[in-house]
Design a protein around this nucleic acid. Structure first.
Length: 500
RNA sequence: GCCUCCAUCGUCUAGAGGACCAGGACACAGGCCUUUCAAGCCUGGUACAGGGGUUCGAAUCCCCUUGGAGGCACCA
């Protein structure tokens, strides 16, 4: 590969499902390499499997990429000089080159039915022979036999005539590859009977005509590279640089992070799609940073870095080739870190959609609610994900809260003592200014007068005002509620204590 | 089964022959702070899979074993 050529890399997802975490990491590395080198990042849609097509997946792919800030220079909705960027719109190109290969004797039409192929596999299994696949039956058909099959209208596919002998060697930037024995590749299909190309063929054709210089893709493609190399050779084209990215394994390390649902670290469901992480309240800047350290390290002593820093340092050669388990707890920590970095006003704005549903309020009403700007800074360092916010501050957005009477009486106190403390505090709160400074000293003094530890008195008040024994700092909660609501809740709690 | 890739703390990783009795982060444990929970700060334990080479010297290079992963479709 000519090093002076401008770098062109691509992400080539197929619209057969939502955008996967692993795909996002592949996209990210491609994007980083393009941005680092000043090259181009291309999005190409590999929609050649009509049976697995999922209508809204294309939108999801684009939404996810944009959410992560991975903008593409060419592709859907952007255009570009190498289009079309949907493989379904490039069919004539594939047909033309398949035909050329057939004419050159490097590919051939195969008329074998699916039934015959299946029978072949059964037979191989029954004889306990390794299942090696197609037996190249149609490779040696005579012209007359072909004419007859064509005349009879037997449907066919186009197969590549892999070299039967010898071995194929290729270079992967990240690992040391042994040569592959050509004979283990069984004349793969280039063009399916429905006229659509297979991945292997469309991929090679498009990467060539789109002038892709580096192919960064998942490890699962490693063993099909020899096939691709032979295709490039047959077509007489230059072979791009390969770098196969390490797979992201299940958090347990047990296998490829599957597109199916598995259980995560705890009992929670393992999130696999970008949209799910987004919906769970992960920040795009955290996801970006996290994805980047899955197989790549910014430096020896930090995991945290900005987009610009990653671009400046990224190099394919620094990618670790070993597959790794998804470190979910690190993602959670990192998301918490990025939440803490946010300006409170920014956090508040990002919180709105996560609050609206659970609190049963409109985003607009929430945005105007006076309690939110008070509470947001208080929960900022308590959040790992945005969707945890509602449970922390819901007490301030409802008229009435329920009480667990047991919580109202701190350990080591009788309910009479708790009631006495609550009554005294209520009386005091009637007159105190509802500010941090206004509440702090008098309430501490009150605890002393009552012979209680500060924590005991504050605990009673915390439960009385929020209904929870774990809540944001007490004074903030009371200020957010306002004097009237705070007093009403204290009185109700006192009433409850009196009854028991 | 066959082919291929990979192998450093529980996990993600730094390490491209001497700077490593192996560094960082998360997680975990203990402590400090403290109004609960967090956050923050301090401290701690735990790793070069095993065995052979090569070399004055190996986590780093080679081989074998073991373990893990991926691939073997008219799916990508």
């Amino acid at each position: 590969m000519d090093a002076s050529k401008p770098v062109r890399v691509r992400m080539a997802p197929s619209p057969t499902g939502y955008f996967h975490l692993g795909s996002a990491r592949t996209a990210l590395f491609n994007w980083l390499y393009a941005r680092h080198t000043g090259g181009r990042f291309i999005l190409r849609i590999e929609d050649t499997d009509r049976t697995r097509f999922v209508p809204d997946s294309l939108q999801d792919i684009m939404d996810s990429l944009r959410w992560l800030g991975l903008d593409w220079d060419e592709g859907p909705e952007v255009g570009g000089p190498y289009g079309p960027y949907f493989q379904s719109e490039r069919l004539p190109l594939y047909h033309e080159w398949a035909e050329r290969l057939v004419r050159a004797g490097l590919a051939y039409r195969c008329y074998c039915s699916e039934e015959r192929l299946e029978a072949l596999r059964q037979e191989q299994r029954a004889r306990k022979e390794p299942v090696i696949g197609y037996d190249r039956h149609c490779r040696t058909l005579t012209a007359a036999q072909r004419a007859e099959l064509e005349a009879a209208g037997v449907p066919s596919v186009v197969r590549f005539a892999m070299p039967v002998e010898g071995e194929t060697h290729f270079v992967d930037l990240l690992r040391k590859m042994k040569p592959f024995d050509n004979n283990q590749y069984r004349d793969p299909i280039l063009l399916k009977s429905d006229g659509f190309p297979t991945y292997h063929f469309a991929n090679v054709i498009d990467d060539h005509f789109m002038e892709i210089t580096h192919i960064l893709r998942g490890d699962e493609w490693l063993s099909s590279v020899p096939l691709h190399v032979n295709l490039y050779n047959a077509l007489g084209w230059e072979i791009p640089v390969f770098a196969h990215l390490p797979l992201i394994l299940d958090p347990s390390g047990a296998g490829k992070l599957s597109k199916r649902k598995k259980k995560g670290e705890g009992d929670e469901e393992l999130l696999t799609y970008i949209r799910e992480y987004r919906a769970a309240g992960y920040l795009p800047e955290a996801m970006f940073n996290f994805l980047a350290i899955m197989g790549w390290a910014y430096s020896a002593d930090t995991d945290l870095f900005t987009r610009a820093e990653a671009i400046a340092r990224f190099d394919i050669h620094d990618i670790n080739p070993a597959a790794g388990a998804l470190p979910l707890s690190k993602l959670q920590w990192m998301n918490g870190h990025y939440i803490r970095q946010l300006a409170p006003a920014d956090l508040q704005e990002r919180l709105l959609p996560f609050l609206a549903g659970p609190l049963g309020m409109s985003v607009e009403a929430l945005r105007r609610h006076p309690a939110l700007p008070i509470l947001t800074p208080l929960i900022q360092e308590r959040l790992k994900t945005l969707n945890e916010a509602a449970a922390l501050i819901d007490f301030a957005f409802v008229e009435e809260i329920g009480y667990d009477p047991a919580l109202l009486v701190p350990k080591g106190l009788t309910s009479a003592q708790a009631l006495e403390a609550l009554t005294a505090a209520t009386a005091l709160l009637t007159a105190l200014p509802f500010t941090e400074e206004g509440l702090d000293a008098p309430l501490r003094h009150l605890a002393e007068q009552l012979g209680l530890k500060v924590g005991q008195l504050f605990g009673i008040l915390r439960v009385a005002t929020t209904g929870k024994n774990v809540a944001p700092p007490l004074f903030g909660c009371m200020i957010a509620l306002g004097r009237e609501k705070t007093l009403a809740r204290c009185r109700r709690a006192a009433e409850l204590l009196r009854q028991c």
